[in-house]
Structure formats: structure tokens, C-alpha cells
Amino acid sequence: MTAIALPYRAALRLRPATVVSVLVVAVLVVALIAPGLLTTRDPNAIDLQSTLLSPSWSHWFGTDDAGRDLYTRVVYGTRESFGIGLGATALAMVIAIVLGFVAGLARGFVDTVLSRILDVAFAFPVLLLALLLIAIRGPSLGTVIVAVGIGSAPGYARMVRGQVLHVRQAGYIQASHALGHTRWAVIRQHLFPNAMRPLVAMMTLGIGQSIVWASGLAFLGLGVAPPSPEWGALLDAGRAAITTSPWLEILPGLVIVVATLALTSLGRTLQHRLEGAAR
């Protein structure tokens, strides 16, 4: 019956993986806000004298078929890739919070109907939905954001609904009702903030996920089109020269992997911490 409680601080110890993730995300944030700090070149400067150069001191990631510096393009592409990731995740969250709260609070018939719709939407492949939207609206940054956002919303919505159902069982919700707070006050003061807690971490995970999806779409030529330096678009552009200049695929691909890993690792750490604090 005597559980040995871990000291509170022990949970806050930084693991090396967390430190690396934070550093990677910090570099990405710099690239996002001030790409000029990380490179002095122009991402769109064409130099036909030096096309398809392999990586070297002067061109860290090599150059592409138009002689543009690949490293510079990756740095400038952060803004577009992250923009899509943030935008799509934010859109997904807004949809998820609205649907999840309506379903979780209404219960009964409304909940059943909404949950079934969400189940169907969840089973519907994101890629297919994206293709459909792009077929209608044509490929553009906005369309990719909307497509990925709507595609990932049902998963989050189900989670929000679960959170709402979980939190509304909590003793403090009943205690607050017993003090004479109105239903709305209880939702605003206790239910909403507590149900939202795990979503912060989920968002971090979601951004990484959205970046991967958007890159996939771009690689298929359905996302942001070249000459945009969006990471997926870089992959698409480099495809033609893959046998002669493989770095055009490998290096941007690695950047996507490292960025997603860092975001995911950070998201997991946040998740564990928040869960620890909630106990």
C-alpha cells in the first residue's frame, strides 16, 4: 500500500535526446525567423557556371541543376515547410477542439452521430482527401495546409472528446458545481484548460507529422511547386538527377527526418511531463 513516490525533480531531469531536440528546434526557429543569419547566399540565385556541384566547403549541401546553393535553399525552405506544419496543425486543432468539445459535452445522440462521422473520417486516407482537394483547387500552399489540416483533424477530435469525457468525471468538476458555479463557468474555468493540457504536446507531434505529409505531397508534384525551396519541393526537383547527384535527395531528406524526429522527441517529452504533473 505504500507507494514510493519519486522525488518531484527527478521527472525534470534533461535527457541528452531532449537537449539535442531542443537545439535542433532552436536552429529551425532561427531559420524560420531570420534565415539570413544562417546563410549569406540568395536561395534563388542562379549560377549556371556551377550546376550540380557535390557538397564542398563553399557549398555545404552542393548545388542543384540551376547552380543554386542547396544549403541556402533548405534554410529558406524551413519557413514554408514549418508554415505548412504550423498552419495545418493549427487548423486541425481548431476543428478538433470544436468537434471534440461538442461531442464530449453533448453526449447522447449528438455525440453518437459526431463520433460515427469522425470514425468514418478517421478511416479516410489523408492522402486521398488531399488529392481530392488539390484536384479541385489546384496545388498551392493554402490548399496543402487545408488538405493536411482537415485530414489530420479527426484523430485529434477523437482525442479531445476522450479528454473532455475524462476530465468531466473529475472530482473538481463536481466540487465546482457543488459550489454553485454555472455550467459555463465550470467549462471555462476547469474543463477547457484541463482537457487542453495534453494537446500542447500533441501539437508538437502534429507539426512534424504535417511537415512529412506536405513533403510527400510536394514530392508527388501536388504540393508547393518548384522553384519554391519547400523541403518536399526540393526532393521533387532533385528527382531527375538522382543517379548523378544523389545529395539533392539525400540531404534535404535527412533534414526532414532530423526535424521531424526532433519535434516528435520534444513532443513526447512534453507529453510525459504534463502527464506527470497532472497526477
Binding site: G171, Y172, A175, Q189, A278
Partner: peptide, 17 residues
């Protein structure tokens, strides 16, 4: 409501963390 109050068994879950 102010005329009637309540104390629950589990004092932890009855507080917003």
C-alpha cells in the same frame, strides 16, 4: 447552493491540478 457544502473522499481529484 451556498447553504450546503460537500467534502469528498479523494481529496486530490477534487482539486483542479
Amino acid at each position: 447552493r451556498k447553504r450546503i457544502g460537500v467534502v469528498y473522499q479523494d481529496p486530490l481529484s477534487s482539486f483542479d491540478p
